[in-house]
């Protein structure tokens, strides 16, 4: 529940701006005579209202209007139609690139599939042959090496025996 004091406080602005009815204004005036708090608030508000802001001038305001309108003009989004999407440079480039990629993949994976497979098969067969021959060579060379060592050792022993 509002007290009379609170009600009057809320009406002080209306009183200052002259928007109250004559009766209400008289009520506020009577309250102000006996309430120091409200009278003090009114004095502060009246003093605040006397402080004027410096005027920047018509030139500033006119330039400001132009600046704001120009900024708005620059920000207005252009109305777009669906058909425009397909004629934009980026989607065209992207579509062309995608098409090229698809064609390339088709050629590589489909057209060149058989020849690649044949080549791969031949290569595998060749590798196996090479491997077998290589292992034979290795085995041969190992046998030769060990036999040489063995014979050399024996030769040394013979030589030693001969020397003794």
């Amino acid at each position: 529940m509002k007290s009379t004091h609170d009600e009057i406080t809320d009406m002080l602005h209306g009183y200052l701006h002259g928007t109250l009815t004559e009766e209400t204004a008289a009520l506020v005036k009577a309250h102000l005579l006996r309430c120091d708090e409200c009278a003090g608030e009114l004095f502060v508000v009246e003093t605040l209202l006397k402080i004027e802001a410096p005027e920047p001038g018509d030139r500033y305001f006119n330039t400001l209007t132009n600046v704001v309108v120009n900024a708005a003009r620059a920000n207005v989004p252009k109305k777009s139609h669906l058909w425009e999407f397909f004629f934009r440079p980026i989607p065209i480039t992207a579509a062309a690139a995608s098409l090229c990629l698809i064609v390339y993949l088709v050629i590589v994976n489909w057209g060149g599939f058989h020849s690649k497979q044949m080549q791969y098969g031949n290569k595998m067969a060749k590798n196996i042959t090479v491997d077998v021959s290589a292992s034979d060579d290795i085995m041969y060379s190992l046998e030769e090496e060990y036999s040489d060592d063995f014979s050399t050792g024996n030769d040394d022993g013979d030589d030693l025996a001969v020397a003794l």
Binding site: L64, V67, V68, A71, A72, N75
Partner: peptide
């Protein structure tokens, strides 16, 4: 200026 441009945007 900032406030008006922002408001219009």
């Amino acid at each position: 200026q900032k406030a008006l441009i922002s408001a219009v945007a």
